[in-house]
């Protein structure tokens, strides 16, 4: 474990917590893409499937973190699609998730480190995570604005994989560890946030709201 990966995981936890708090406190999921949250839930379940297969006692933080990610993302989907369904902005959350899932699944079958079920699921989860935020960014571009709390959520969510890139540089240099598939997908994922990062740093930090087109 290194400082970049530690802060990356903390940033990821923060993002999940910020979104849960926003929906729970405001009792509304306006401005939140339910599709992105569904895709994240699929990512966690397919990536941490080992938790369900050979359940090992919760002997380390990693197992606990995996369970937190899975349960928090499923609970977020429950809040969006059931509890606060009336506030779900289905009209603007209109990006076709199939256009993200099918290519990720196809690519996972073509480019992977080992052609076995667990590895293909892990690879699918990595590819899907890289594009899972697109419905959320699409929704913001359709509504033309983002609530400040949602901007903080997006900043934490984007920072997590950006920090993981630093972690991969660190591990390459000190541990000669390379996980090419995760690195390439992580770079693509972070690039997708660049536009938002620019708006966040030039606007939200100064107390303004993000309004599109900028």
């Amino acid at each position: 474990m290194n400082i970049f990966r530690l802060f990356g995981d903390l940033s990821h936890l923060a993002a999940i917590a910020i979104l849960l708090l926003k929906i729970w406190k405001t009792r509304s999921c306006a401005g939140v893409s339910g599709k992105t949250q569904l895709l994240f839930a699929v990512c966690f379940i397919t990536r941490y499937i080992d938790l369900f297969l050979h359940f090992v006692s919760l002997y380390n933080t990693e197992k606990v973190m995996k369970l937190i990610y899975i349960s928090a993302s499923v609970f977020t989907c429950y809040l969006i699609f059931f509890k606060f369904k009336a506030t779900y902005d289905g009209n603007h959350d209109s990006m076709r998730a199939e256009f993200l899932i099918v290519p990720a699944a196809g690519l996972a079958c073509l480019i992977n480190t080992k052609f076995d079920a667990i590895e293909i699921l892990w690879t699918f989860s990595i590819y899907l995570e890289a594009v899972a935020i697109l419905p959320q960014l699409f929704l913001i571009s359709k509504t033309g604005e983002a609530e400040t709390i949602t901007s903080h959520y997006l900043f934490a969510q984007g920072s997590y994989r950006a920090l993981y890139i630093l972690n991969w540089i660190y591990r390459y240099h000190y541990e000669s560890h390379v996980d090419t598939i995760a690195i390439v997908a992580g770079v693509v994922q972070t690039i997708l946030y660049c536009d938002f990062f620019y708006l966040y740093i030039t606007k939200v930090v100064k107390g303004q709201k993000i309004v599109l087109p900028a």
Partner: peptide
């Protein structure tokens, strides 16, 4: 060194 395909990150 991790054996092939083992991923030790979240």
């Amino acid at each position: 060194k991790l054996h092939e395909g083992q991923h030790d990150e979240l």
